[in-house]
């Protein structure tokens, strides 16, 4: 599997390249936005690991240009400022996942594998889609609204964000700590209760049977998994 690692920070590429190679990937490097665009075209990587802050073109612009030209190469964005707003924006630009610097390199490998497991998309990836559906459940991401059939259902902002994240990572077991880190922006051990409260809210709103869930499954001791199939809705 081919990875294109785009980061202008020499120290990072010097250390990450051997690490990723040892993890079984073939790795190429780009040092600025324009070089990244050229190499995505010429090398056709299976995954692009893309730093946001780069010379010439920043990572977000690179991602936007790729998606505008219907290039759906999976992108894992490396965020810098790391605010929740920036992370949400990365997904809106069409990144498939994001990691905050400084990250654990093993976590990067886990994310790359997860993105690869979802399969190489020939069309728009769900991460870049505005509207997602699963059965009669649909979410409209830009307006942060959720629907069962034609009926709108009322979720809090956090409840919506959790549902959106689990739908985007459908089939994956997502740990509470990861949800906290990605959505709340903190990962205090004690705060995992906050995730449970939002999961309970989503289940209540969706009328889920906890024993036989159609959407949200609890994996005891590990986290939650969205079990329905997720499609891009028109």
């Amino acid at each position: 599997m081919k990875i294109l690692l785009a980061d202008d920070e020499q120290a990072i590429t010097t250390e990450l390249v051997p690490f990723l190679r040892r993890s079984g990937f073939e790795v190429q490097v780009a040092h600025d936005g324009e070089e990244t665009l050229r190499k995505v075209q010429s090398l056709r990587p299976d995954v692009l690991v893309l730093d946001i802050v780069m010379p010439l073109l920043d990572g977000r612009e690179v991602c936007r240009r790729l998606r505008t030209s219907s290039n759906w190469t999976p992108v894992i964005m490396l965020t810098h400022v790391g605010s929740a707003g920036e992370r949400a924006m990365s997904l809106e630009e069409g990144a498939d996942d994001y990691l905050n610097k400084p990250f654990d390199p093993f976590e990067l490998v886990a994310r790359i594998k997860a993105v690869l497991r979802r399969g190489a998309p020939r069309t728009q990836s769900i991460a870049a889609a505005h509207r997602l559906s699963s059965g009669d459940l649909a979410i409209d991401r830009p307006s942060r609204r959720a629907f069962r059939g034609k009926r709108e259902i009322a979720l809090t902002g956090k409840g919506f964000a959790v549902l959106e994240y689990l739908m985007l990572h459908h089939g994956e077991v997502v740990a509470r700590e990861r949800l906290l880190d990605e959505i709340w922006g903190w990962d205090y051990p004690a705060a995992t209760r906050a995730v449970d409260v939002r999961i309970a809210e989503i289940r209540r709103v969706l009328g889920e049977d906890v024993e036989h869930p159609s959407y949200l499954e609890t994996i005891v001791g590990e986290g939650y998994r969205f079990v329905g199939t997720v499609d891009i809705a028109g």
Binding site: E15, P18, K101, P102, P105
Partner: peptide, 20 residues
């Protein structure tokens, strides 16, 4: 905070390489 992120990312990967 911003300036610490890149060196720390490189150091974490470097440590993993040394351990391996």
């Amino acid at each position: 905070n911003h300036e610490l992120k890149n060196p720390l990312t490189a150091m974490r990967a470097g440590l993993a390489n040394l351990a391996a």
